[in-house]
Lab assay of single mutants.
Amino acid sequence: VKKMAKAIMADPNKADEVYKKWADKGYTLTQMSNFLKSKTAGKYDRVYNGYVIHLD
């Protein structure tokens, strides 16, 4: 998940494709939050927020 999150950060155009894969795998927002937690607070906030919007 972190590898794909980094791919989104490097190229935001990949976001919809990645979010669809995550949704197809049934990842919940709680799971995504836990996967994307980082020592650098807020590092993956943009990715998480994008997934929230995708699921909505």
Rank of each mutant, 00 (worst) to 15 (best):
V1R: 03
V1A: 05
V1F: 08
V1G: 03
V1T: 03
K2C: 14
K2S: 04
K2D: 03
K3V: 10
K3Q: 11
K3M: 12
K3A: 13
K3L: 11
K3Y: 08
M4G: 08
M4R: 04
M4E: 15
M4N: 06
A5D: 03
A5L: 07
A5H: 01
K6T: 06
K6D: 15
K6P: 02
K6Q: 14
K6E: 14
A7P: 01
A7K: 11
A7F: 07
A7N: 07
A7S: 11
A7E: 13
I8E: 01
I8P: 03
I8M: 07
I8R: 00
I8L: 07
I8D: 02
I8T: 03
M9V: 07
M9S: 03
M9P: 01
M9Q: 06
M9G: 02
M9T: 04
M9C: 09
A10S: 11
A10Y: 09
A10M: 13
A10V: 09
A10Q: 12
D11I: 05
D11P: 02
D11K: 06
D11Q: 07
D11G: 01
D11R: 05
P12L: 07
P12Y: 10
P12R: 07
P12K: 06
P12M: 07
N13M: 12
N13F: 10
N13S: 15
N13E: 12
N13C: 14
K14D: 03
K14G: 06
K14L: 14
K14E: 06
K14S: 09
K14F: 09
A15F: 04
A15D: 04
A15T: 06
A15L: 06
A15E: 04
A15S: 11
D16C: 14
D16L: 12
D16A: 13
D16T: 13
E17C: 12
E17Y: 11
E17S: 11
E17D: 10
V18I: 15
V18H: 03
Y19E: 01
Y19C: 04
Y19I: 02
Y19A: 00
Y19H: 03
K20F: 06
K20Y: 07
K20C: 07
K20W: 05
K20Q: 12
K20L: 07
K20V: 07
K20I: 08
K20P: 04
K21L: 15
K21D: 13
K21W: 12
K21R: 12
K21G: 11
W22Y: 02
W22N: 01
W22A: 00
W22V: 00
W22P: 01
W22M: 00
A23C: 13
A23H: 10
D24C: 12
D24T: 10
D24K: 10
D24Q: 11
D24Y: 07
K25Q: 14
K25D: 11
K25H: 11
K25V: 11
G26S: 05
G26A: 05
G26Y: 04
G26Q: 05
G26I: 05
Y27T: 00
Y27D: 00
Y27N: 00
Y27A: 00
Y27M: 04
Y27R: 00
Y27K: 00
T28H: 02
T28P: 01
T28S: 09
T28W: 05
L29K: 12
L29Y: 04
L29Q: 08
T30K: 12
T30C: 13
T30L: 12
T30V: 12
T30M: 12
T30H: 12
Q31C: 09
Q31S: 07
Q31G: 02
Q31L: 06
M32D: 03
M32E: 03
M32V: 13
S33D: 10
S33N: 10
S33Y: 13
S33L: 14
S33G: 12
N34P: 00
N34Y: 13
N34L: 12
N34Q: 13
N34F: 12
F35T: 02
F35M: 14
F35N: 04
F35G: 03
F35Q: 04
F35C: 08
F35I: 11
L36K: 00
L36C: 04
L36Y: 00
L36R: 00
K37I: 09
K37F: 09
K37E: 12
S38P: 02
S38K: 04
S38I: 05
K39C: 11
K39H: 13
K39V: 10
T40V: 11
T40L: 09
T40P: 15
T40I: 11
T40E: 12
T40R: 09
A41G: 10
A41F: 09
G42T: 05
G42A: 05
G42W: 04
K43C: 10
K43G: 05
K43A: 07
K43E: 14
K43F: 11
Y44V: 01
Y44E: 03
Y44K: 02
Y44T: 00
Y44D: 01
D45R: 06
D45F: 04
R46S: 15
R46W: 15
R46M: 14
R46P: 11
R46Y: 14
R46L: 14
R46H: 14
R46G: 13
V47Q: 01
V47C: 04
V47K: 00
V47D: 03
V47N: 00
Y48V: 07
Y48F: 13
Y48C: 07
N49D: 14
N49H: 12
N49T: 10
N49L: 14
G50K: 04
G50D: 07
G50Y: 04
G50H: 04
Y51R: 00
Y51L: 03
Y51S: 02
Y51G: 01
Y51E: 01
V52A: 13
V52M: 13
V52Q: 12
V52H: 07
V52L: 10
I53C: 11
I53N: 14
I53D: 13
I53R: 14
I53L: 14
I53S: 12
I53G: 10
H54I: 05
H54Y: 15
H54M: 07
L55F: 04
L55S: 01
L55Y: 04
L55Q: 02
D56N: 14
D56F: 13
D56T: 15
D56E: 15
D56C: 15
D56V: 14
D56M: 15
D56I: 15
